[in-house]
Design a protein around this nucleic acid. Structure first.
Length: 337
DNA sequence: AACATTGCCAACCGCGGCGAT
DNA sequence: TATCGCCGCGGTTGGCAATGT
């Protein structure tokens, strides 16, 4: 449909609203309502287009708007709803009385999105990020290592070692993320959170909503998500909640959790999976332990996840240890030496 | 103190849905 | 059925404030 531009051709005032304009708009709507936004500004004595008036009213002047910081509960609801609905801000706003879609959208883009990214969760898919490549400009990385940029050979050596360590850790992260991605989905499906056993899972929406990408969601979904008054099943702090969710998924890695021993960590990074483009930096022979087997082969067979080594810990503990400088620096030092 | 950078959010823009004609 | 025009939505931008250098 071809439509002539409206806002461009007009000489309506744009930009921030003045208190006087606000007052005129509020007064008019209080007295007459807002049945016709196009006609409203003229009747209200405003030199604004109807669209501008509508936005000002719905996003700022409406009496039922709740101002101020988002509560942790609201934040949690937003995260969960977004994992199901995506960027449907108006739909999300419907479940947060007093909040506008614009406000929620801004809050998402300025706060939640960043937090999720910092946690290694893709804010679009709500799954652990696997695009770690963007953290790492490999050509830059390897180029610097190959040619060196300092005069001191020892500096070059140390730099190379540091680079190799970082690459190794990224490699490990990638493997962990791949495992978590597949097993998280498998767990969701096996628990009928997404399966056909509960086809009315999203009844709470009540508006015939199309639920898209539910199988891409990283969080468990329940009807409570759509009832802001429901007793939260997760702690009020969303990060704590997400942490707990991660922990809750440990069961998905097998009845006893996914066990990874220290040696398997090095082995997994030394023996390449077919999806991993990074070169093996250290020979697998340096890691006598059993690797984290390819999940495609071992899915559904928990025995494949473990080598039975006494010193075992879950993938999440492994993650924590990876992040812990003291731990991984000494660990990788051993390997690289 | 001055300037630069970053964060935040209100407002705008353009598109699609949908009812009216 | 085709077209028009209003409305709502999601993405983007501009400007102010806060923070850093």
């Amino acid at each position: 449909m071809v439509r002539s531009p409206r806002s461009h051709s007009s000489d309506f005032k744009k930009g921030p609203w003045t208190p006087e304009e606000d007052e005129k708009l509020v007064d008019y709507i209080k007295r007459n309502g807002h049945e016709n936004w196009k006609a409203l500004p003229k009747l209200a004595g405003l030199n604004r287009c109807g669209k501008s008036c509508r936005l000002r009213w719905t996003n700022y002047l409406r009496p039922d708007i709740k101002r101020g910081k988002f509560s942790e509960e609201e934040e949690r609801v937003i995260v969960n709803l977004h994992s199901v609905l995506g960027n449907k801000w108006s739909r999300i706003a419907n479940h947060l009385p007093g909040r506008t879609d614009n406000e929620i959208k801004n809050f998402w883009n300025t706060h939640i999105r960043k937090k999720l990214l910092q946690m290694g969760i893709d804010p679009n898919t709500h799954k652990p990020r696997t695009d770690l490549d963007h953290f790492l400009n490999l050509s830059q990385f390897l180029g610097a290592a190959q040619f060196g940029n300092t005069a001191d050979p020892l500096d070059n050596f140390l730099q190379l070692q540091a680079d190799a360590t970082q690459l190794a850790n990224i490699q490990l992260l990638r493997n962990l993320l791949q495992i978590m991605n597949t097993n998280t989905l498998a767990n969701l499906e096996s628990n009928s959170l997404l399966g056909s056993q509960n086809p009315n899972l999203f009844e709470g929406l009540g508006d015939g909503a199309t639920i898209s990408n539910t199988k891409e969601s990283f969080y468990p979904v329940s009807q409570d998500l759509f009832n802001p008054l429901a007793t939260p099943q997760a702690p009020p702090n969303d990060f704590q909640a997400i942490s707990n969710l991660w922990a809750s998924y440990e069961g998905g890695f097998g009845p006893e959790g996914l066990n990874i021993n220290n040696n398997s960590l090095s082995s997994s990074y030394g023996t390449q999976t077919d999806q991993n483009p990074l070169p093996a930096l250290v020979s697998a022979s340096t890691s006598p332990g059993t690797s984290i087997v390819n999940q495609k082969e071992s899915k559904g067979d928990p025995s494949n996840y473990s080598t039975g080594t006494p010193a075992t810990y879950t993938v999440f503990e492994g993650w924590e240890k990876l992040i812990d400088d003291d731990y991984y620096s000494s660990y990788w030092k051993d390997i690289l030496e």
